[in-house]
């Protein structure tokens, strides 16, 4: 257990030291999300928002639309930075450092979650700062606010880490995970209700959205920040179940990967 913890910390430290100087994350995880955020906000202006409360209790003004969208985007930012961290697994594979990791007796699960957490702390602070600024500027400050924000971050961190663990394992499997990125990136963003409230979805779309833990995380966080009477208890249960399932899936896949690598040895490509 102590070793596991040590590995998680070492992995996070490594990520930080390795990626801190790369300026590309300032684009992919700060500038682009901000542009897309405003793009989405303006897209909504084509609609008559005064009619919105009838369909969804969440949005009834431009202010609440802003908070609705910004929570969506920050949640997505957490999850997307996980996909990016997993993406870098490809580089580790090519540089042979993945082989060096496998050479050691380190617990793979610890490595995988270390990667997720490392990427989170590395990447999401920028957009989070932006989001908090938006939230503060669009809402009158209350005392509660200072307890709500940390809770929101805790929920995002927890669920994104579990998600990131799974992503990392999947990218361990295959060297061409580009297709997976295609499948996960846009669909996750859409069906999790980052930009459209999921409760207004048709049934088939709702069924898809249940798969993504981001959906439930967003429901809870929006419930907290927008103070709606959303059944957040129900969302919390759903989130817990989906996180447990993801965790189990991660372990199963990891075992398979470990066996596969030990049988075939194809971890490095020259």
């Amino acid at each position: 257990m102590k070793d596991t913890f040590k590995i998680v910390i070492a992995e996070m430290k490594k990520q930080h030291r390795h990626n801190f100087h790369s300026y590309s994350i300032y684009f992919s995880l700060l500038l682009w999300p901000i542009i897309i955020f405003f793009n989405t906000y303006y897209t909504y202006l084509s609609f008559d928002l005064t009619k919105a409360p009838v369909f969804s209790g969440l949005i009834n003004s431009k202010q609440s639309l802003l908070i609705f969208l910004i929570t969506g985007f920050i949640g997505y930012n957490f999850f997307y930075s996980m996909v990016q961290s997993a993406w870098q697994m490809g580089a580790e594979r090519q540089n042979g450092t993945l082989e060096t990791i496998i050479l050691s007796p380190a617990n793979w699960l610890a490595v995988v979650y270390g990667r997720s957490l490392g990427a989170l702390f590395q990447n999401v602070w920028m957009f989070s700062t932006f989001s908090i600024l938006i939230i503060i500027s669009s809402r009158s400050l209350e005392v509660n606010f200072f307890t709500q924000i940390p809770i929101a971050f805790f929920i995002f961190t927890l669920s994104a880490t579990v998600w990131g663990g799974l992503m990392n394992v999947i990218f361990l499997f295959s060297r061409d995970a580009a297709i997976l990125n295609n499948v996960l990136d846009d669909p996750m963003e859409f069906f999790s209700g980052v930009r459209v409230p999921t409760e207004t979805f048709p049934v088939w779309a709702k069924m898809i959205s249940v798969i993504f833990p981001l959906t439930h995380s967003l429901t809870i966080v929006r419930g907290i920040l927008l103070k709606t009477n959303i059944a957040w208890m129900e969302a919390a249960i759903k989130l817990s179940i989906s996180l447990v399932l993801l965790f189990i899936l991660t372990i199963v896949l990891l075992k398979l990967v470990e066996k596969n690598i030990r049988d075939n040895g194809n971890i490095t490509f020259y």
Binding site: K13, R17, H18, G96, T100, L103, P105, A106, T268
Partner: peptide
């Protein structure tokens, strides 16, 4: 295992940081 060539280590990290990381993997 020690392989020839320049791979298997993190280029953006220093020697000290590389060894700290790999040492931690061995607990």
């Amino acid at each position: 295992l020690i392989s020839g060539g320049e791979r298997n280590i993190y280029w953006r990290l220093t020697a000290q940081e590389n060894l700290e990381y790999f040492g931690a993997l061995y607990g």
